[in-house]
Design a protein around this nucleic acid. Sequence first.
RNA 1: GCUGGCGUAGCUCAGUCGGUAGAGCGGCUGCCUUGUAAGCAGUAGGUCGCAGGUUCGAUUCCUGUCGCCAGCUCCA
Length: 649
Amino acid sequence: MATQVPEKKVPEKTMLPAELLAQGGMALSADVIGVRCAAQVYDLMTPVPQGACERIEPIHADDTSSPALSMLRHSAAHLLAQAVKALFPGAQLATGPATEDGFYYDIAYERPLTSDDLPAIEARMAKLAAQNLPIVRQELPREEALRLFAERGEPFKLEIIQEIPADQPITVYRQGDFLDLCRGPHVPATGLLKATCLMKISGAYWRGNPENPQLTRIYGTAWFTQQALDGYLQRLKEAQRRDHRLLGPAMELFHLQEEAPGMVFWHERGWRLFRIIQDDIRRRLERHGYAEVHTPMLADRSLWERSGHWSLFQEAMFTTASEHRLYAVKPMNCPCHVQIFKQGIKSYRDLPIRLAEFGSCHRNEPSGTLHGLLRLRAFVQDDAHIFCRPDQVFDEVNAFIALLMRVYHDFGFDDVLLRLATRPQARMGDDALWDRSEQALEEALRAQGMSYEVLPGEGAFYGPKIEFALNDCLGRIWQCGTIQVDLVLPGRLGAVYVDEHSQKVAPVMLHRAILGSLERFIGILIEHHAGWLPLWLAPVQAAVLSLTERHESAAQALCQQLQEAGIRAVADLRNETLGFKIRQQTMQKVPYLLVLGDRELAEGTVAVRHAFHGRIGTKTVAEVLQMLHNSPQPQDGPQKGCLQMENDP
RNA sequence: GCUGGCGUAGCUCAGUCGGUAGAGCGGCUGCCUUGUAAGCAGUAGGUCGCAGGUUCGAUUCCUGUCGCCAGCUCCA
């Protein structure tokens, strides 16, 4: 971008926030830590350009808005750095920003810092906070700044200074004998940083590039009050309680073990859940004009060479050899689906052709990236490839988004992150087709009334895509659904159809998945519902509990009656107290507990308890069946939404 | 894959400054016959992740390796 010569004849008139506040008739009370001015936050040390905004608003030291917290946390990062420099004088500071709910600082030191070092650092931080050191801002000439940080042995800071555009001032913030390069804003004194604690320590590369030296990253969090900090720590604990890696085995759904890293052992209940989900998706796909197929798990290396996977994806593919031929275990289903498309001659009138597969894929992911069900080496995708004409892309994408949102809604997700990834620098296919494809995706998003984020340059080399992502319990974002335009693969693999002019042309191919991987989706589902799956998904919907040995046969009979009525029921006939059985079934998140004792046998009823909501009352078996059958089913049909059970008791 | 941490009974974890280990829960047996989130007693479980090294002796110290956890990078 060409920059005009800055018309900096007279330096712009500026005023400190305190003056501005006074001008506006507002006194600068002791708890004011900054001001908000035209959506911009200024700290008390930074002059505000006059005329920057009409109205300024003080920010108080109990503000819960994210700019105010960011300011606090950014200062907390400095406090951390100050403590580290005091304890480990040779440490070199890289960067230390505020994050979504805390802050970190990347530090290089002669030895890696470990979690054993944290208590000492934390203690020093508390001491520095107690001293209530004023935080002072200072603008420096570039040479002066370079000299200062060279003197202090901060090579990373020098690198950063050199990248600051020449027309931007260089500012440093000081507190006591500590000084850091920083554009601010910061709170006025370290005394505000009392509700601060260090969380964890890990590695990070300088500038996120693995070629660069690895630094120690220390994470912490900071809040304005101890109460807010405690609340945050409490929320973290809650989130951990939802962790699918703990809940899954506790609910007897699955386990993982080291002989099969990144691969799941599904137990009966988990596999039942898997099948319920698979059947639900299968039913919807049938209604939406998809044809389900099934393709080989292994294919000869030559197919992957033709598809381009061998050159781009080889690292991630498992291979196996037989009779002097090398096979790769499929990491994706697309090349195989193209092979099905290629059988016979296709007319433009045949399109779109939608081939779906619950494709079992293997990818040799780096060991460090594996994470419960959310990141595996073997997983099943609800994959499909739509072969269509360029003019059909919009309709297909439009229909897909509607289908996907319907599915997410039925599974209890209404908060979906949508991202449109557009053409990268390195790409294949001509620009006219890219224009048309990106436009089709964007128009479909608008037609569906979706808000989305554009990620410029993040598209695949073969085409633009829309990603649909969900959050897990720790706020991490996991991509599930996707729809990707592929302008390249059909051509590479020689797939064609005959158009209305009798010409053979390559179809556009849309890769699309709703759940992404069924395994990952189940992991997110468990966390989202904290294990309390909607009734239609619960692997066991009801447990019949016998009170004593006298009630065993009646319990067994009731269980069978429920099963015959299509309810997934088990009988708990163990010689244990009722309280014990209720506790165990509750921990396994079995939604309905049906108790049979003398009273119920005499009355011909059953005592119903909902594991989450508690006692419901006594009902006849007919009433129980009616209640279970009337509970909401997934839609994409005439029925209503899902039974929601959001939290634990 | 990289950096750091961790790996002890089925699970959660304690412990050994180097002398082959212990608790709670769970399991089993018996008692109890149970009324809405853990009844009582007894009892059996362990090559202390795996492989080397140091040592009279290693679960403990060292090295390597595998796995797990957090983050980085990558990704459904």
